[in-house]
């Protein structure tokens, strides 16, 4: 278990608040999806919250990230507005994408969140372009690519690690290894058990970290951010974690995973672990936890109310924004 010596108690409680926000947001998104209020497809990040929060806590406001189809956690950890997120899931005009994107395409360029992306590995090169932009801007910014174990087998991962290493781009590549690419076990499709080992092929550091320990993730990310900011180039961080839910929230979807395996990972709950760590340090008690939970729930209820009160787009808005002015 990693120690959290370089983070203030307030910061640590903020990390807990963010992780709880991700979980409660997705529990609600899932329920509302099954109730028919949210459409299409929803991919939940529950169980992996420590990765997004641990990494984003190591970033500054000018740093940029890109996400995946499983993107709510990254949005929340980077500071996205819950109202506009929920409104987007509800398909409303007030959503981040004016109802054009939905769960898989939430972006907020204003806070450096370059978008969830519906194509596995689709965002890796785009965010590497953000790394190039940061290098050309010369203001010490960095860029983070979040992607899964599935994307690590796709061409863009390898092409971009090579370019980022060759050009010494200020990049952090964060593989969220939840052991399954949709329904297929990584053990069936990966030649090596550790994605991080591939970093050696590009001459960059590759770090394996317990992805359910938010302090361990934060520590690894902080080191990688320092290295990137100082011109040292990219780092690959592999966070070993697990998604508690099936690939998507669609009802009746096959989930071939061993239920005992799922339960075993639930006992390694990243939120419970952080709570324990905070209590052990004397930084959290029951009233404190209740206050955090209460704040999270009221923000969530406000977001749902905002979404429900928001108008749907007008049919004629389907032709808006195909091209920019």
């Amino acid at each position: 278990m990693a120690l959290s010596t370089n983070l203030s108690p307030d910061k640590q409680r903020e990390m807990l608040r963010q992780m709880l926000t991700i979980r409660r947001f997705e529990e609600r998104a899932s329920a509302d999806y099954l109730a028919g209020k949210i459409y299409g497809v929803v991919h939940c990040y529950i169980g992996e919250e420590a990765v997004a929060v641990g990494v984003c806590t190591a970033l500054g406001g000018n740093d940029r990230i890109i996400s995946t189809h499983r993107g709510h956690g990254h949005c929340i950890a980077k500071g996205a507005d819950l109202n506009r997120m929920m409104a987007e899931l509800y398909g409303r005009q007030t959503g981040y994408c004016k109802g054009k994107g939905g769960s898989m395409h939430i972006a907020d360029f204003g806070i450096g969140m370059l978008g969830a992306n519906g194509i596995v590995a689709g965002g890796i090169s785009i965010v590497t372009g953000a790394g190039l932009a940061a290098q050309m801007e010369g203001k010490g910014g960095v860029a983070v690519s979040f992607f899964g174990d599935g994307a690590s087998n796709a061409g863009p991962f390898h092409e971009c690690l090579n370019i980022a290493a060759a050009w010494k781009l200020p990049m952090i590549y964060v593989c969220e290894n939840n052991m399954y690419a949709a329904q297929t076990a990584a053990a069936q499709t990966h030649a090596l058990p550790d994605v991080a080992a591939r970093a050696a092929g590009y001459g960059i550091p590759g770090i394996v970290v317990d992805g359910n320990d938010v302090f361990a993730v934060h520590q690894a990310a902080s080191g990688a951010v320092d290295r990137a900011r100082s011109g040292g180039g990219p780092t690959l961080i592999e966070c070993k974690t697990y998604r508690w839910r099936a690939h998507t929230e669609r009802k009746g979807q096959p989930d071939p995973r061993d239920q005992a395996e799922v339960e075993a990972w639930k006992r390694k709950d990243p939120i419970a672990l952080l709570e324990r760590q905070l209590r052990d340090q004397g930084e959290l008690d029951d009233p404190g936890l209740r206050a955090i939970e209460g704040g999270v729930m009221s923000a969530l209820e406000a977001a749902v109310a905002f979404a429900e009160a928001s108008p749907f787009p007008l049919p004629e808005q389907a032709t808006d924004d195909v091209f920019a002015a």
């Binding site: 090169s125 785009i126 372009g129 092409e159």
Partner: peptide
């Protein structure tokens, strides 16, 4: 594929 995406991000 990579440098087209890099262009998009930039």
């Amino acid at each position: 594929a990579a440098f087209t995406g890099i262009g998009i991000g930039a």
